[in-house]
Design a protein around this nucleic acid. Sequence first.
DNA 1: CGGCGGGCATGAAACGTTTCACAACCACTT
DNA 2: AAGTGGTTGTGAAACGTTTCATGCCCGCCG
Lengths: 333, 333
Amino acid sequence: MAASIKDVAERAGVSIGTVSNVLNRPEKVAATTREQVLAAIAELGFVRNSSAAQLRAGTSRSLGLIVLDMANPFFQDVAKGVEDVATELGYALMLCNTDERASRENWYLQVLEEQRVRGVLITPVSVSSERLDALRRRGTPTVLVDRHDPRGDCCSVAVDDIAGGEIAGAHLTSLGHRRIAFVTGPLSLRQCADRLAGLRRAVTAAGLDPDRAIEVVEAPALKARIGYEHARKLFESGTDVQAAFCANDLLALGVLRAAVSTGRRVPDDIALLGYDDIEFAADAAVPLSSVRQPTVQIGRTAARLLLEECDSPTTHAHQQVMFKPELVVREST
Amino acid sequence: MAASIKDVAERAGVSIGTVSNVLNRPEKVAATTREQVLAAIAELGFVRNSSAAQLRAGTSRSLGLIVLDMANPFFQDVAKGVEDVATELGYALMLCNTDERASRENWYLQVLEEQRVRGVLITPVSVSSERLDALRRRGTPTVLVDRHDPRGDCCSVAVDDIAGGEIAGAHLTSLGHRRIAFVTGPLSLRQCADRLAGLRRAVTAAGLDPDRAIEVVEAPALKARIGYEHARKLFESGTDVQAAFCANDLLALGVLRAAVSTGRRVPDDIALLGYDDIEFAADAAVPLSSVRQPTVQIGRTAARLLLEECDSPTTHAHQQVMFKPELVVREST
DNA sequence: CGGCGGGCATGAAACGTTTCACAACCACTT
DNA sequence: AAGTGGTTGTGAAACGTTTCATGCCCGCCG
């Protein structure tokens, strides 16, 4: 069906090898020959078959990125960072969405390994994955994103959530707040637990008793709707909290809605601090203060670590990169 | 390096063909032989090389999806729909982000064609693309997403934006509003122009003069920040508009912020109607009424059309599917 | 007993590249 | 005239599958 390199060779009246050279090392072939070959390529609409190229080369020029949820702004930004670096270096990116399902993660790992991708960036569904270990064992470089590798047998890029919680707590206590709600998703998520730990540390450092200063509101998901419902219940209970620190911006936006709908003014009646600094945080009805993670940079760094390992697998030493988050103050605190 | 089918064959003491049969038609192989082969596969950690399989088969089991911007919730939902259908049928998805740059679009089209993907779903950067036409001419099925193909030589799935504008206009006029602001992105975008056309039609149908009833506020981008700035200017000018229809939800959220910050009450002082019904619309400080597009269904439909064309290229007839949007009323109107 | 058919396994060809050792040619130098 | 070196081009092998014609073995029927 499609024209092959052989058809091009015949048409241009040269050998197959020469066509291949025009494609891969044009400077090695005489200008006139090259012209003829290029003309033949154009006439036939030839497009290189990368399966054949890969088969022969034994390696592809593509990366896999497996994330938990592409609807999550965090992963979008990470993906953007990865994509930037990848396209810059001529790698194609296979973007894979697990929806937090282990079965899909395994399926994608299988597909990527069959495709012989050069490397894989992944935020695994659970801490340990047999298939992932197998992939690594067989020699495909792997980088963990937003996860820390306890065993140090691959690179990882994460953000220090304890530090993030601490920054948040320091900010709120320095504004004089003595009763702080921590609105969070399931504390079984490391992220949430760490942010709480950091908050407690900061509150303690400010000379308060964390058990009395912090009121934990644990919600079942990190969504705006859920934040709204829980905050509403909290407000209607006649709470005395002066500030709410939320485990992510969506929760915070939900809390903001609850505040507006119960007639509270932000930040006068209640201060509000989010986490992630999603793009929309700055444009909320009351622009939201937030703890920003360097998401795009996480992606870029992860991609660079991966490609470094691909390029020099022997000299490469695994690194555990840990970024520090940063406070962005707007009108809600 | 990696174990090949040949290694497996040796280890299991069978021929290469038999291993291939175990992989592809297990029922054709005697149970005991199959066991041995499977054992050998497990021991060696064999993973099929899909480049070789593809090369031989001449066709791959993957699709390409090229979108303008993965940060846009519209495309996220579309992608989800496509992914659902694709994985269900065992196809892998290559997700490609052009960032609205033609150069990237061309690069991705090249990569996808080299990979011999089975088909391509695309929202092209511009109306006509030489590379895209070439791809189609060479026999790769193509479906346009959120675009209408004027020439009818491929399938397309889009949404009727004129109808959307009309629904919006009918809703607002039925609420008694006589002066309506249309806050929009560049009118050079078909989407925006169509929605305005629909709005004018509805206003006319309500017995009003569209030139006097509608105040067009054309902003340079469909972003919350921009919506805030333009709405603020509008409000401070002492306008008499009673309602604002926004070309997308992000603009509407910006307008909401402007309303809140200038002390206007929504919907009493000003009614607000968005477009797209992004997930967050329901959880804004004032839950936003919006015109919903069936995004996930667009993705599913597009994928199904594509796979249908792949499966029966001869009998397939191109279809131009056009969905109608739907009004979702919440508290902002 | 001879022949036949079904169930399984085999071996080789083919897919479209890349790569590499080698050949052909030319221009110089000795 | 022979040798040297450099520039271009050639042809065949190899990559790991799938597929298909072929062959083998066994049991059954006549």
